[in-house]
Design a protein around this nucleic acid. Structure first.
Length: 919
RNA sequence: GGGUGGUUAGCUCAGUUGGGAGAGCGACGGCCUUACAAGCCGUAGGUCGCAGGUUCGAUCCCUGCACCACCCACCA
């Protein structure tokens, strides 16, 4: 083995081996376990969120696979309608072309081309993370089979009356020229104004003042509303005002939606451009005047001077014109929520168009039930509340998009606009018995991307065919996803799956937080704090990192800031830490918390952990070169029995962590066992035996066997979290432990064995550790040379102490670096010493000339202070009659024991201090 | 406006049947001790956001408040 752990030299090799040998495919007779990957955007790039999510899923998958389950991790990618179309449109733009010049067919062809070129990128990156997905079953949301599933679902829902087409107000994105769903609109508070206009009463008797944040929409006003009980305006209801600029007469209506206390209490009503006004328009049968075109420019029905004008320019002009007319009463600064498209970032316009909708209420009812009754569980549980609150108030889902990239809606129209829904034109003609010469045209729109991803769990398994995969793996088990797409994706999967499969899509939804930078800031290009998981695996030098973070930055000031900040944080760039270290870092961060702050400092620590394992393996191999499994009786040492016992606790803790989705606890239990017990103590305790010429061969074989067996067990325990290093080392040692199989991936996962518990060995080693630590403390504090062999005395020990000293002579001598240990009897004169306590036993390190008197006084005083503080607390409790009376007896006893021990220890320490001082 | 999560060592975070406050990184001191300097040994550091309450006892349970983050909602 190389002296230093080098992830680069092992990772790619093993992944290829695994993939080539089809180790990722479902296998065996075990119970099925299945995870569906949340399909990443086919042309996307792996980010930290993917990294985190993939690490979690792979751990679950490898864990179940090793436990013998018939395990499938289904992989695939999403066509991501808007995102992908935008990328390709941007490319065209750079060539000075537009998609409209190209035409629909050519454009879609071009997107497929782009998918072909860059579609492999993200899947290559998933491989780098060690994801054991079954590549042979990779799917795409627009592959032929999926297309069929999507059509089937659309047609059936339409035939059942759960999909309808209607002309309604939708969220219109004027940049992308498409409708979007409520979820794709993000409303942020921004500074704006509240303008007060005068609308003159038609009969000449004065005017009403309306307040608005959107002056330009006045061109589409069809009423002014007041509250029915508003004394100020009650008498005017039924009269009309004359709308300035348009000179239209519009009614004054009463509606209790109006808040009398806001603004003037008069609201201008623009049914075609505001969701509330739309509802009111319906209630009062108001005309709906659309003032915009698809670009959100004023349309040709508007007064000529505003036609073709951009909405924001029109606002300025209208304000100026109203002011000129003397109708602008006042302007106030006003904070308001501005709706913007999550993709385009432009202000969304409520806009009257024909769109397709899913009637969600009936679907949602069932979907609520399965979470209520526990068939589907959310982890952490509180996300269920979020789910419920949204589902119980769900709105119909606008599923049509005016894009070209996506599933085209399987609907046709005749000249009269009658709708025919079916698989294709021929089938539609047959289904609806249409005359062969009736001209039909297909709907131009495509479906919302989430409509197809909503079918992911069963669509990928072959539905609508009744496949073996579907019967075996559906319902799937665990869905691992970010909480931010619970509504977008999770809820819709549950609704659609219940409807079409009459079963749940998965039984558990594990929701993880958002991966942020080390200061809790969201990672974003504009902040320049984005970390690329691949860079942490492969490393990146400072210049490349700077170039990457500032690529395409237009603002020099921003660019400078990002450079400065990056130089400060990564003066040397980023080291190549390897996949295992990156993954382990993700696990350590996978607590219940909602935000995951990724600190690069931690990955280094876990790379070091890999190196620790690596070197432990080197040690084991060096000492077991000629070892082979033997049938001869071997003798197990105390340390052997101890580490085996301790391993059971570790194995239980790791499994518990994984089972409860507490990967932080699982990784911590593993880390602590490997480093603090196996390496720090067990490997050290093995040396006195292996390097002792007097030790028997049976003892040495026992130690070698335990070294190997424990190492091999650790590798299996760690494999789901750190697949590469564990496979690499496992291959090197498997023959020595008689392990079968070609890969650790199929080796059995360790299960804690209660019979291997050994409380005697654990207690003895605890005592040994205390002994050694006592000496080390004196060494460290007294500045004694670490290599200096000490001759020490023990005193006041009981029978147990004497046994332990006797039995563990070798351990103590080697690890505490002792020349000799001798017992002093009660009446023996004590040499002046530095002392340590192990239970009731004193350890004396004679001072001779090596120990400084003042130093030792100081050290003793520190010990005394510490214990005094503790004793005070304990005595406080024991002196409290209430405590003694009311606390459980075992708690009181514990405190009493503690008080006695502390008292005894203090007595010794103090007399020792007096002796030293009196010197 | 309604709701959720958070506030613990300098930093990032663990800490559920309420009974001794922890880890990693960083800091300090000492070591190239034949697995590992990506290491070893030792040390220091916290009024567990604030104020009340319940309890013999509260980081943990209850109430209120402050601050941070997020989700939902029709105030022109």
């Amino acid at each position: 083995m190389e002296k230093t752990y080098n992830p680069q030299s092992i990772e790619r090799k093993w992944y290829q081996t695994w993939e080539n040998n089809q180790y990722f495919a479902p296998k065996g007779e075990g119970q099925p376990y299945c995870i569906m990957i949340p399909p990443p955007n086919v042309t996307g790039n792996l980010h930290m969120g993917h990294g985190f999510q993939t690490a979690i899923m792979d751990a679950l998958i490898r864990y179940h696979r090793m436990r013998g389950d018939n395990t499938l991790w289904q992989v695939g990618t999403d066509h991501a309608g808007i995102a992908t179309q935008m990328v390709v449109e941007r490319q065209l733009d750079a060539e000075g072309k537009s998609r409209h010049e190209l035409g629909r067919e050519k454009f879609v062809e071009r997107v497929w081309q782009w998918k072909k070129e860059s579609g492999g990128h993200i899947t290559r990156q998933l491989r780098r993370l060690g994801a054991s997905v079954d590549w042979t079953r990779e799917r795409f949301t627009m592959d032929n089979g999926f297309y069929k599933a999507v059509q089937e679902v659309f047609i059936q829902l339409y035939d059942e009356g759960l999909i309808y087409r209607g002309k309604r107000l939708v969220n219109w994105d004027p940049k992308l020229h498409t409708a979007i769903s409520d979820l794709e609109v993000v409303a942020e508070e921004e500074d704006g104004h509240l303008w007060h206009f005068r609308y003159p009463l038609t009969n000449g008797g004065g005017h009403l003042v309306v307040a608005t944040t959107r002056p330009e929409t006045m061109l589409g006003d069809t009423a002014v509303a007041v509250h029915p009980e508003d004394e100020r305006y009650r008498h005017l209801v039924g009269q009309t005002v004359t709308l300035p600029l348009s000179n239209r007469e519009i009614p004054i209506i009463a509606d209790d939606y109006v808040d009398m206390d806001f603004g003037t209490g008069c609201v201008k009503i623009t049914p075609a451009h505001d969701f509330n006004d739309y509802e009111m328009g319906l209630r009062h049968q108001l005309p709906m005047i659309n003032i915009f075109d698809d670009d959100a420019k004023l349309n040709d029905d508007m007064p000529s001077k505003y036609r073709r004008m951009d909405r924001f320019d029109a606002r300025k002009d209208i304000l100026a014109d109203l002011e000129a007319l003397g109708q602008l009463e006042k302007v106030e600064p006003h904070k308001l929520k501005i709706p913007r498209g999550d993709r385009s970032g432009v202000v969304i316009e409520p806009y009257l168009t024909h769109q397709w909708y899913v009637k969600t209420k009936p679907l949602a009812e069932e979907a609520i039930k399965v979470v209520e009754n526990g068939e589907i569980k959310f982890v952490p549980k509180n996300y269920e509340n979020m789910y419920f609150s949204w589902m119980r108030d769900i709105q119909d889902w606008c599923i049509s998009r005016q894009l070209w990239w996506g599933h085209r809606i399987p609907a046709w129209y005749d000249k009269e606009g009658k709708i025919y829904v079916g698989r294709d034109e021929d089938q539609v003609r047959e289904k609806y018995s249409l005359a062969p010469d009736l001209a039909l045209i297909q709907d131009d729109d495509v479906l919302d991307t989430w409509f197809s991803s909503g079918l992911w769990t069963f669509g990928t398994l072959g539905w609508p065919e009744n496949t073996d995969e579907l019967n075996t793996f559906h319902p799937t088990n665990t869905l691992v996803t970010g909480f931010e797409i619970i509504f977008f994706w999770v809820a819709r999967m549950i609704m659609l799956t219940l409807h079409f499969r009459k079963e749940i899509p998965f039984d558990t939804v594990y929701c993880h937080g958002l991966v942020r930078d080390s200061h809790g800031q969201k990672m974003s290009k504009s902040k320049g704090n984005v970390l690329d998981p691949i860079d942490m695996i492969d490393g990146i030098d400072l210049d490349s990192l700077l170039a990457k973070r500032t690529a395409g930055m237009m603002l020099p000031r921003l660019k400078e800031k990002i450079e400065k900040q990056t130089r400060k944080e990564f003066p040397e760039g980023i080291d190549a830490y390897g996949t295992d270290a990156l993954r382990f870092t993700f696990y350590s961060l996978a607590s219940r918390s909602r935000d995951i702050n990724f600190d690069v400092g931690r990955i280094e620590g876990f790379r070091n952990f890999c190196n620790k394992i690596w070197n432990a393996a080197r040690y084991v191999l060096m000492n077991c070169e000629n070892y082979s499994p033997t049938k001869d009786t071997v003798e197990l040492s105390l340390a052997d029995r101890w580490i085996v016992a301790r391993f059971q606790d570790a194995a239980r803790a790791v499994a518990e962590g994984i089972n409860s989705y507490r990967f932080d606890l699982a990784s911590q239990a593993l880390y602590e066992f490997v480093w603090n017990e196996y390496c720090d103590w067990y490997l050290e305790l093995s040396k006195p035996i292996l390097w002792d010429d007097d030790a028997s061969e049976a003892q040495k074989q026992g130690t070698r066997q335990t070294l190997l067996h424990m190492l091999e067990s650790i590798l299996r325990l760690a494999h789901p979290l750190m697949p590469y290093i564990t496979e690499e080392i496992w291959q090197l040692i498997k023959s020595k432990v008689g392990a079968e199989g070609e890969t650790i991936m199929y080796a059995p996962y360790p299960i804690a064995d209660p019979d291997k518990q050994d409380s005697q060995a654990v207690a003895d080693i605890e005592w040994v550790k205390h002994f050694i630590i006592g000496i080390r403390n004196i060494r460290g504090e007294m500045q004694l040379s670490p290599g200096k062999l000490l001759s020490i005395y023990c005193k006041n020990g009981n029978v147990e102490d004497r046994r332990r000293v006797e039995e563990n002579h070798q351990y103590l001598g080697k690890l505490a670096k002792l020349e000799s240990i001798q017992w002093l009897e009660a009446d023996d004169e004590e040499p002046l010493s530095a002392t340590a306590l192990v239970g009731d036993m004193d350890i004396l390190v004679p001072m001779a000339d090596l120990i400084d008197k003042d130093e030792e006084s100081h050290r003793l005083q520190k010990e005394i202070d510490k214990r005094n503080k503790e004793l005070k607390q304990v005595e406080g409790k024991l002196n409290n009659a209430n405590f003694v009376d009311k606390a459980p007896a075992d708690v009181v006893d514990k405190e009493k024991v503690k008080a006695r021990e502390l008292g005894a220890a203090l007595e010794k320490l103090e007399s020792q201090l007096t002796r030293i001082k009196d010197l």
